[in-house]
Amino acid sequence: MSLSSTTKSAVISFKNQTSRFNNFKLIFLLVIVLMVFFVMLWPRDNVYSITGDTEAITIVFSEDAINQWNISGAIYTNGFPDENNKSDLLPEDSYFFPNKDTTARVSIIKALDRSNELLIIFTSSGTSTGYIESPEETIELLDYVEMKLPIEKASLLAFEGETHIGEDVGQGVDKILLSGEVRIIERQLFRDKKYIAGDYLLDSGDRLTLYKDDSLNNHTNMKGFLRVSDKTSFDFTVHGEGEVLMVFRLGSADYQITPSVWSRITKDPIIAAITTILATVFLLMEFLDLLLRFVLKPKDNESE
């Protein structure tokens, strides 16, 4: 009789312990799920780094000191080229300083002697596009300026501003992005260090624009440079902080490049460490649970 009651109390105690342990596991699991959601969805700073080879790029200048271009030896037309606006040659040591929101469209064309020359079209909506400073004078520019710059040696044009890389393929379009690669660099959780969250290859004919947020209304100012050489296209590298990189591609719906949540789990070292520790703890708890069941399990004849 007393043995039977002891056995019963042991069984009840075992059941209570198992139940408490299961509750603890459930709470632990919930905490893990919440933590995973927190670390995966918490907004981070993303830097988009785009490199490639293009025949066309459009820059809307911001107000930054980097936006000054050496245009020594360029032939320029101030205004619509007609009988009233003749072309002029700029002397050595001439620099172009754009006004804010001036658009520059850069491409490479063939000159009459079949050599390559850089064609830059500066436009603005009704206001001056900027000014040229040469050793002799300062020239205030109109709202449309054409500039042809002979390519004699490799040179760099650095800039900051809203950047549209390539042209979307359509009727009459002959200058496009030739190739490129996008690298997303994301800030680590709780740390100021960064990691590569993804690499994406671009197709020939893509057009890219980086936006600050999902609404796709606010552009990001990107910093970068063009390297002009004797090719008919130029190499570019641009960097900018943003949320969404829009890719306009012929023959497919436009798509957005954003860092994936999965890349945070696999590539952020902090998250990878946290998830590994949590998975190990959970595994240990499962093991402990099995062990408890095995050790404290009342024998069959005792329960009878």
């Binding site: 066309a56 619509f80 079209i121 436009t123 449309y144 042209e167 359509g170 009727q171 009459g172 379009v173 002959d174 200058k175």
Partner: peptide
């Protein structure tokens, strides 16, 4: 205007 990315006046 469908200009084929030319400058239009």
């Amino acid at each position: 205007v469908s200009s084929g990315r030319s400058d239009v006046f």
